[in-house]
């Protein structure tokens, strides 16, 4: 086994754009669930909308700023569509509607009737031009060791992580303010907050939109190093984001970032080790394809163990969760 390569790949995941995209999506989910108590099981839909609403205008020749605005506006509209009928109801209704609508939008973009727009099952590619065009880094290869990338890959990483930092700062500023106090109050008991004269519905909608826009921007970061593939946006994606958020701690600033890094490093390590073992003949009873699946079975087990034994995550406050209210 080439241990150097395995560890190199794993370490590279720490700053990969995919890690940044998942972190961003988990920060958005943290606003939904961790702070406001909204059970959003359709975060994948926000990533999908971000990805398509960015790629489609770009392929139609729109400048990058228009494409980004389109992604943000589409996710805001989607948040309203989800929120208007469900946010007046109990929290569980939002959970049902989000999980269903995430599947609905995925089936819509996969429809062959929309091939001209969405590429149906093949997805979209060739939309990186406008993003690469504003890259200030001169052509070449930079970095050291496992962190050696060309100018485009660095550009994606820099922008991706800058967005993660921006989102974290935004969440920090929001949650230390009276606004954050209101949404945290809603998480605890929305009737109590209502009885104190706060428009609970409006705050829930604001939180849904903010987290949704973060998910949508995460969708853009996610597709910049690859193509848009509808198969990427299954409920599995939503549950990876949930795992990341819970791993780091739901209502924390650094939780989603560190959670995402750990998630991807562990996935990369297990993949490297399993594949290495299979290729060297140490593991004979499974194929590499099966090994790939096993990793995701482990993610499910990890999510269960996490919720049972460390529900507060890495950064969460144990005391905060030790009360059963």
């Amino acid at each position: 086994m080439d241990w150097g390569n395995i560890f190199g790949n794993a370490v590279g995941e720490i700053i990969s754009p995919t890690t940044a995209a998942y972190a961003l999506a988990a920060i958005g989910l943290g606003v939904h669930f961790g702070y406001t108590g909204l059970l959003n099981f359709g975060q994948a839909a926000f990533l999908l909308i971000g990805a398509y609403a960015f790629a489609i205008p770009t392929l139609a020749g729109a400048p990058i700023i228009v494409a980004v605005l389109s992604a943000i506006i589409c996710s805001v509209i989607f948040a309203f569509i989800l929120g208007i009928p469900t946010l007046r109801l109990r929290a569980d209704y939002l959970a049902i509607v989000t999980i269903a609508s995430a599947e609905v939008v995925r089936y819509i973009v996969t429809t062959t009737g929309l091939t001209d727009f969405t590429g149906a099952a093949n997805g979209l590619s060739g939309f990186k031009g406008t993003f690469a065009a504003i890259n200030p880094i001169p052509q070449g290869t930079y970095g050291f060791g496992p962190f050696t990338y060309n100018e485009y890959d660095w550009w994606v990483r820099i922008v991706g992580w800058a967005l993660v930092i921006l989102a974290s700062v935004l969440v920090f500023l929001l949650m230390r303010s009276p606004w954050g106090r209101v949404v945290k109050g809603i998480r605890e008991d929305e009737d109590a907050v209502r009885s104190l004269g706060k428009n609970v519905y409006s705050y829930k909608m604001q939180a849904l939109v903010i987290g949704g826009v973060m998910g949508s921007v995460a969708g853009i970061v996610f597709i910049l190093p690859r193509a848009v593939q509808p198969a990427n946006y299954t409920t599995g994606l939503t549950f990876f984001i949930w795992t990341i958020m819970l791993l780091g701690g739901a209502a924390t600033i650094f939780g989603p970032i560190v959670g995402s890094m750990i998630f991807w490093v562990v996935l990369s390590l297990t993949q490297g080790i399993l594949y290495g073992a299979i290729e060297s003949g140490a593991l004979t009873f499974i194929s590499t394809t099966q090994a790939g699946q096993i990793r995701f079975i482990l993610v499910g087990v990890a999510l269960m163990l996490l919720v049972i034994f460390r529900p507060q995550g890495i950064f969460g406050n144990k005391k905060e969760l030790s009360f059963s209210v």
Binding site: P178, W179, R181, G185, E188, V193, K198, Q206, L321, V325
Partner: peptide, 25 residues
Amino acid sequence: LGRLSVLQNMLLGATGQRGEGLFSS
């Protein structure tokens, strides 16, 4: 509101807070 401090509970009761607006917060 269990997972808020006693003081935070109290502050939530105040009305007309400027910091409760999304942008002013």
